[in-house]
Computed example of a mutant assay.
Amino acid sequence: MYEEKDLVISYFKSSGPGGQKKNKTESAVRIQHLPSGIIVTATESRSQLTNRQTALARLRERLLALRRRRKQRVATNPTRASRERRLEGKKRQAAIKKIRRTTVRSEE
């Protein structure tokens, strides 16, 4: 799926709450897959190893999603019953609008 030479792995200090431990250790992991340009990060754990494994799993999922082929959509025609229902609804709406029109004309 991917080779080690295709990845650029960098470590950085993650942001957010966590205090001194989180502020001074570079436990967050960012992995870039060069051929596809996908970048994934993992900052959940305080362990660099755990974050690296999480990021690799995310990268694997993203690459599988890229390879997955979408099903071709098959266009279908509406059924006779659905056409009749739509026309019936239009007739009902037209009748309501016809009632709303002013039918009284002023006599001259």
Rank of each mutant, 00 (worst) to 15 (best):
V8E: 13
I31S: 06
L64C: 07
R68S: 15
A65C: 01
R86Y: 04
F12P: 02
T43W: 00
Q32K: 13
K97I: 05
P78W: 02
D6M: 10
G89A: 10
L34M: 14
A42E: 02
T103M: 05
K97A: 09
E88I: 04
L64R: 12
R80W: 02
K91P: 00
G18N: 05
M1K: 05
T50R: 11
Y2R: 07
F12D: 06
K24C: 14
R105N: 07
M1L: 03
G18L: 04
K5F: 12
K21P: 00
P78N: 04
E107S: 13
R86N: 05
Y11W: 13
L64V: 06
A65I: 05
T79K: 06
A55N: 03
R100N: 14
A81Q: 13
Q72E: 13
N23I: 03
T54D: 09
R85T: 04
V40E: 06
M1R: 05
K22E: 03
S15Q: 10
A55C: 03
E61K: 13
A95V: 12
E84S: 09
K5Q: 15
K21E: 08
E4I: 07
R83D: 04
I9F: 09
G18F: 02
A55K: 01
R92K: 15
D6L: 04
L66Y: 06
P35K: 08
S106W: 05
Y11D: 03
Y11M: 08
L56Y: 02
T50N: 10
R86D: 06
V8Y: 04
